[in-house]
Design a protein around this nucleic acid. Structure first.
Length: 260
DNA sequence: ATGCCTCAGCTCCTGAGA
């Protein structure tokens, strides 16, 4: 089973790339079973459900105008679908969860936070608290759980192109990392670090100043897996290829391979 | 540089992203 997360920064713009990437994986005999998308930036009526169906994917989606928006694509339909964090009042479409082949999959677009001390940062902290409470309960009901998406948080300096210059800046603050570690403390594992990785592995690169070409990036897209799934993990990689496309997203997909 | 790209939209500038 292969699961992936990708912030595509507008599904209208990136639909051909998403379809092309899924087709390429299938052609290489490593089809993606579940794909979580973030930043659809479209209302629900615009979601290209037919295009995904033609590509062999069932879809669940939760959009809004201009910003945010998340979707879950899967080769077998997801059940028990939940949109946003139950019990956490939120104007923004950031979370979609479903059960696929016995695995509880949560796709999430974590708040950016803009700047430590800002209102958006406070919202990010509250959102992280709400998410953790809910995930804790989900884990009780679903021991096989995957929490993946654009976390907008780095774990440590390995996830930063400039650990010194970016110290305590957004995505790299102690407060944000506290919440990320608190998710880990629920019994989740950073699947990427279960395996040897190339140095300076990132999942996002700034569009400006040739960020990708100079590998000035951050690893902020993560796939966390529960302890019940950990023994099944076989690989986790960032696929940098789509970042080399014409008009790429600023994020690259992260792909997890689980045994059967 | 409160910039640098990219995207959406009450679209030819602005807000937001990270």
């Amino acid at each position: 089973m292969r699961l992936a997360t990708w912030n595509i920064n507008s599904l209208s713009v990136r639909l051909p790339q998403v379809l092309g990437w899924l087709a390429a994986q299938s052609a290489a005999d490593v089809p993606i079973d579940v794909l979580a998308l973030q930043e659809l930036k479209m209302t629900d009526d615009k979601f290209p459900v037919d295009a995904f169906a033609a590509a062999g994917y069932s879809a669940q989606w939760f959009g809004q105008k201009t910003y945010n928006g998340v979707a879950l694509l899967s080769r077998t339909p997801a059940t028990d679908v939940v949109k946003n964090i139950p019990g956490f009042d939120d104007d923004m479409a950031r979370v979609i969860a479903g059960t696929v082949a016995g695995v509880r999959v949560i796709g999430a677009y974590f708040p950016n936070g803009q700047e430590p001390g800002s209102d958006k940062f406070e919202y990010k902290m509250e959102w992280l608290k709400g998410l953790r409470q809910w995930v804790k309960a989900e884990l009780v009901e679903h021991p096989k759980l995957v929490l993946m998406g654009d976390y907008n948080i780095t774990f440590d300096e390995l996830d930063m192109w400039d650990p010194v210059g970016l110290q305590d800046t957004i995505h790299c603050t102690e407060e944000e990392r506290y919440h990320l570690r608190a998710l880990i403390a629920l019994g989740l594992h950073d699947s990427f670090r279960l395996f040897p990785q190339p140095p300076k592995s990132f999942s996002w690169w700034d569009y400006r100043e040739f960020g990708f070409k100079r590998n000035r990036g951050l690893r902020i897209d993560h796939i966390l897996i529960s302890s019940a799934l950990k023994p099944l993990a076989q690989a986790c990689v960032v696929d940098k290829l789509p970042r080399k496309n014409e008009r790429p997203s600023d994020h690259a997909p992260v792909v997890l391979t689980l045994a059967a």
